[in-house]
Design a protein around this nucleic acid. Structure first.
Length: 464
RNA sequence: GGCCCCGUCGUCUAGUGGACUAGGACGCAGCCCUCUCAAGGCUGAGAUCGCGGGUUCGAAUCCCGCCGGGGCUACCA
């Protein structure tokens, strides 16, 4: 009963541990996971650590941490194992070598002894002659006999390379324009263009979902898959790039917002980041803006993916994060707030949440509203009228049950009795308690502080 | 330079030849609510659909050219 279309869906991401975990990695992971869940397929995490110069184990941990935080968990990976282990390219070197040897033996690849300087000279020459550069094939035609250091080059067969992109449709590339490229570096490590197709083939990847920067890499990889006699993936999907405000691809060096951990530190909810990422480059075709992960799994499709790159926008992310915060259950939100308010006990946080909820765009915002609980403010300078009002307020609330509502009623009673406006009555209290002009509603500002502390901060103003 | 992808309000986008006086969201402005700040409600400003030619009775939507942006073109991935 095996129908070709029903073949197992196997997708993957292959991030490089060459720095902090990148926003683009999360985005690509999201689309892969969405597709895998939709098609009951599996999602593999493969670590692309063939750049021995830049690659670091701790960066790999950062990738794990970020992806777990976002809930984008994988079925197979270096830390989990799986039927196609190992999942770290540095541990698959023998496999690449075997494949290189095979191509060499079949005359589909050849050793190149050219030095980087010679190559550079070729390139410059081509540029000077305003001619598109392609490797000269001098080591294919007439290899030098006196050298030992070499790379392995693929002998590009030429012709047309066609493939299906789930977003852009049928793609055609002219391989005649592609020069013989390097498969194995002189340090024995494979290049990305070689390792990627070997892994995708041997790991039986069915759909390659990745960023658009790889669109023009696809013909390179397809030629290798063909030369090796492997079956090609069923389809590719090249997602639009996430662009920085300046319109360039988000880069680790130039754009700090590409650092995934930044979002966790600032108190963005993983749900909200996922939600925002999904909407960057894709739309549901409806007016819905807020999506849970499960909803995304249900409605996501590649034919509603945008073709053009999308600029990253903090404002929209902030709004989505706020929507998630406001929509969250109080107890749940209190739990999420705890790491940001480590000096406060759980009960206090819980009592603050109802008032805090509509005032945060990110969890870290809570600290500005609540730091007066821990830090006694410098007593503000108040005019005599304000001092009088503080007296009135202190008198009204000193014996009231210490909860927001009774406090609110007591103060409103003062307003009703004296005709003093709420603004004139509450502002001095706010200043006395927090030293700031902005705080939670006054009854919360009061109630969150122990009664004695609150009254003392008021009374010392009256005394002075 | 060559190849590839792309081009609708500031941003994310809807739109696939007539219902488009181009819709929504974020942001922005104003008003309402209001003890501050938010949240919420209402209203509004904001896009000659990159430009120029076609095709057509009719084009944001199809074709050509140009311009602009991005990606790839590495012994980075």
């Amino acid at each position: 009963m095996d129908v070709p279309e029903a073949a197992a869906v196997r997708v993957r991401i292959a991030p490089s541990p060459t720095g902090f975990a990148h926003l683009g990695t999360a985005s690509t992971a999201l689309y892969n996971v969405l597709y895998a869940r939709q098609r009951q397929g599996s999602f593999t995490l493969r670590v692309d650590d063939t750049d021995i110069e830049r690659n670091r184990p701790e960066y790999e941990q950062l990738i794990y941490e970020a992806l777990h935080w976002l809930g984008l968990d994988w079925d197979e990976g270096p830390d989990k194992g799986g039927p196609f282990a190992p999942y770290r390219q540095s541990e698959r070197i023998d496999l690449y070598k075997q494949h290189a040897v095979k191509l060499l033996a079949e005359g589909k690849a050849y050793k190149c002894f050219c030095t980087p300087e010679e190559l550079e000279a070729e390139r410059r020459q081509a540029q000077a002659e305003k001619r598109p550069y392609k490797y000269s094939r001098r080591c294919l035609i007439d290899p030098p006999k006196d050298r030992s250091q070499f790379t392995v080059r693929f002998k590009v067969p030429g012709g047309e390379i066609k493939f299906t992109d789930m977003i852009r449709g049928e793609m055609t590339f002219d391989a005649g324009l592609i020069g013989d490229f390097i498969l194995v570096k002189s340090d024995g490590y494979p290049t990305y263009q070689f390792a990627s197709p070997v892994d995708d083939s041997t790991m039986k990847i069915s759909h390659v979902i990745r960023g658009e920067e790889h669109l023009s890499n696809t013909p390179y990889q397809l030629m290798i898959i063909d030369a090796l006699g492997y079956e090609r993936p069923q389809a590719f999907a090249h997602m639009p790039l996430i662009l920085a405000k300046d319109g360039a691809k988000l880069s680790k060096r130039k754009h700090p917002e590409s650092n995934l951990m930044l979002y966790r530190e600032q108190g963005y909810l993983p749900e909200a980041l996922i939600n925002y990422l999904a909407l960057l480059g894709w739309n549901p075709g409806t007016a819905q803006e807020i999506f849970t992960f499960d909803e995304l799994v249900r409605v996501f499709s590649f034919d509603r993916v945008q073709h053009a790159g999308a600029r990253f926008d903090w404002e929209k992310l902030n709004w989505i994060n706020g929507e998630w915060i406001r929509g969250m259950d109080d107890a749940e939100l209190a739990g999420r707030l705890e790491p940001f308010l480590s000096s406060l006990d759980k009960a206090t946080i819980m009592r603050a949440v109802p008032a805090l909820k509509t005032r945060m765009t990110k969890l870290a915002d809570a600290t500005e509203y609540l730091d007066y609980l821990e830090q006694d403010p410098e007593p503000p300078a108040l005019d005599p009228d304000s001092i009088e009002r503080l007296k009135l307020a202190a008198e009204a609330i000193k014996d009231v049950p210490w909860q927001p509502e009774p406090i609110e009623h007591a103060l409103e009673e003062v307003v009703a009795r004296t005709g003093i406006s709420k603004n004139k009555l509450y502002t001095p209290i706010r200043l006395a308690l927090t030293g700031k002009k902005v705080s939670l509603p006054i009854h919360y500002t009061l109630a969150l502080l122990p009664r004695e502390v609150a009254l003392e901060r008021i009374n010392r103003m009256v005394r002075s």
